[in-house]
């Protein structure tokens, strides 16, 4: 199998980037997309002309959230519900031309080539994406029963891997799906109720300050989310936010 990659190359945040085209032969349809890039990098290394393409990866089993890549305009490529590392070349035609771009958002500055800096997500979590419990102060785990439906609902949104595909696809580069997943995960549980209002207000303030846009409800984040998190979470976030803003306006500023 042969593929033609058109890849964004950018040496550092200060350099200007551009697309470069590479032809890679002898690929196998059973390869994962990242393995095909590995092959390209080995090829570049052998040729000693250009440095290999930098891209993020780690677990290569779809759970760490490290891999990214916008493939032909689609974050994580054409398959629904998978990350780039789980995408295989079976999904492409022989000799297909594939454009590979990094996540594009002002809040995810490019580090090099296809690698971006997603630390804004960490800062959003720092602003309130937790339950304030110190080690050792917890009561017995079964002391507070939690309705199964609620626990399942919490799990479904807690499955977020923080990859940033939602931001990458959003026309506003909004991270509302990411914030909503954490907010609704924690507020669905009794343990998380105490800080419910502060949490949603603080996290959204942080979201806005990081430069992410607003939600236009186009639902494209839901379509590209590798963990199939529903935009219903964003609606729930809006509700919680408005309620909190009315209840604790002083916490807004």
């Amino acid at each position: 199998m042969k593929l033609i990659f058109e890849i964004w190359r950018q040496e550092s945040p200060d350099h200007k980037g551009q697309f470069k085209t590479y032809e890679v032969n002898n690929l196998d349809t059973n390869m994962s997309f990242l393995e095909a890039l590995d092959v390209l990098n080995e090829q570049l290394l052998r040729e000693k002309k250009e440095e290999p393409v930098a891209f993020d990866y780690d677990c290569r089993e779809g759970i760490c959230g490290m891999c990214s890549l916008v493939i032909n305009g689609e974050p994580h490529g054409p398959l629904q519900g998978v990350t780039t590392c789980q995408l295989h070349l079976r999904s492409f035609k022989d000799s297909e031309r594939i454009t590979v771009e990094p996540w594009r958002a002002k809040s995810f500055p490019i580090v090099r080539d296809l690698v971006t800096d997603r630390s804004a997500f960490d800062r959003i979590i720092s602003s309130g994406g937790y339950i304030s419990v110190n080690t050792g102060s917890a009561g017995d785990a079964n002391a507070i029963p939690i309705e199964k439906a609620k626990a399942d609902q919490a799990f479904d949104v807690a499955a977020c891997i923080g990859c940033g595909a939602c931001v990458a696809t959003c026309k506003n580069s909004s991270a509302m799906l990411f914030v909503a997943a954490k907010v609704t995960h924690l507020s669905a549980l009794k343990q998380g109720e105490v800080e419910k209002e502060e949490r949603v207000l603080k996290m959204m303030t942080s979201h806005d300050m990081e430069g992410f846009g607003s939600c236009s409800q186009t639902k494209s984040c839901e379509a590209v989310c590798p963990k199939n998190i529903s935009t219903a979470a964003i609606t729930a976030l809006n509700r919680e936010y408005l309620r909190a803003a009315v209840k604790k306006p002083q916490a807004l500023s």
Partner: peptide
């Protein structure tokens, strides 16, 4: 902007 525009369900 992205080079390849894709609606992604929008």
């Amino acid at each position: 902007p992205y080079k390849v525009k894709h609606p992604n369900a929008s």
